[in-house]
Amino acid sequence: MKKEWPLWEVFIRGQHGLNHRHVGSLHAPDAEMAIRNARDVYTRRKEGVSIWVVPSALITASDPANRDALFEPATDKIYRHPSFYDIPDEVGKM
């Protein structure tokens, strides 16, 4: 019998209207207990109004060895940032 519970990634939404954000991971035997454990481990100080849990094994990650090929080309394309426009004051914070 496998002794270790599977790993879950935990996402918490801090307030209504905001996105769920990754806050960490934990072990639990199934999704229901992962939610309970996440409630106890990650929302003790009023951090959230909603919890998502995802089995860590289901996450496909980019390969760190490919970092240059994946991300380096974006570093010299400053024109992709919409920073050349004057934003009218009445628009407020963007």
Binding site: W5, L26, H27, A28, R36, N37, D40, V41, R44
Partner: peptide, 8 residues
């Protein structure tokens, strides 16, 4: 028995 249980 487990860290998660400890905190709970």
């Amino acid at each position: 028995p487990a860290l998660e249980e400890d905190i709970a």
